[in-house]
């Protein structure tokens, strides 16, 4: 009888079994979880990634509310065919301010990690209202209710909550959350204050009505910024190779 047949002693004794399981979980946890907090290479050092603007954040909440992540991933994997179709593969740094991240795990529709700038606001609005108006073969449901007004009364509290989990919103950002949100819809000036706080924010009322801020405006602002924050012409491939 070799030593491998002796495990019966452990398995038939509740105390030893419990201690064995505990040791196993502790070692596994230490090896798999702890390094994530100390490895400096997990999140790539690239410029451009910023916290979401208040309007984008509201759009992101709608994205989650409507369950977009069930059919759309936001994760371009480093494979030839994915990069050919969707663009540069996703970086961990690009979702470092996502709580929770929207990588998804199933693609019934296409990946959306770099959808920002691919379509016009006009197209996105038509597509959200009834996808078959623009893509006859689409099986995506319509979301005409997104034309309803956006309730953003708690936007400052949302920013504050995210700050508690590590998103670097400043006091200024939180104080101006409401006006920033309204300015992103209403201003078409290229030197609006919000663009200094949130560079590359997508300005304008997507639904064509700057007077009323709709859920559509928020969702489009979010979709239009996806994957556009990092300027990949300025990123050296060897610095993000993993």
């Amino acid at each position: 009888m070799s030593v491998f047949n002796q495990h019966k002693v452990l398995e038939t004794n509740v105390f030893f079994l419990a201690v064995g399981i505990l040791l196993f979980v502790i070692v596994g946890g230490l090896v798999e979880i702890v390094p994530l907090f100390s490895i400096s290479s997990t999140i790539e050092k690239v410029g451009g990634v910023r916290p979401y603007s208040p309007l984008e954040l509201m759009g992101r909440d709608i994205y989650i509310r409507e369950g977009c992540y069930l059919c759309h991933s936001q994760m371009i994997r480093p494979f030839k065919d994915e990069v050919e179709r969707y663009g540069h593969y996703s970086l961990a740094a690009e979702s470092k301010y996502d709580h929770p991240f929207q990588w998804g795990s199933k693609r019934t529709g296409p990946d959306l990690a770099r959808v920002g700038g691919k379509y016009t606001d006009d197209w996105l609005v038509r597509h959200f209202i009834n996808p078959r108006d623009v893509v006859p073969e689409s099986i995506m449901p319509g979301y005409p209710h997104l034309r309803k007004p956006l309730d953003y009364s708690d936007i400052a509290a949302k920013l504050e909550t995210l700050r508690a989990v590590g998103v670097p919103y400043t006091d200024d950002d939180i104080k101006n959350a409401k006006t920033d949100l309204e300015e992103q819809v209403r201003s078409d000036s290229s030197d609006a204050a919000i663009l200094k706080r949130y560079p590359k924010a997508h300005m304008g009322a997507a639904d064509g009505n700057p007077k009323a801020i709709s859920q559509m405006d928020a969702l489009v602002a979010y979709v239009q910024v996806l994957g556009t924050m990092v300027d990949f012409t300025a990123v050296k491939p060897e610095t993000i190779r993993r």
Binding site: P35, L36, S38, I39, K80, Y89, R241
Partner: peptide, 19 residues
């Protein structure tokens, strides 16, 4: 994983390098 990095393997293979 190590405390501040990870073992890169004999040939330094990486998924992104492969791509």
């Amino acid at each position: 994983p190590t405390t501040s990095n990870y073992s890169h393997g004999l040939f330094g293979w990486s998924a992104r390098g492969q791509l």
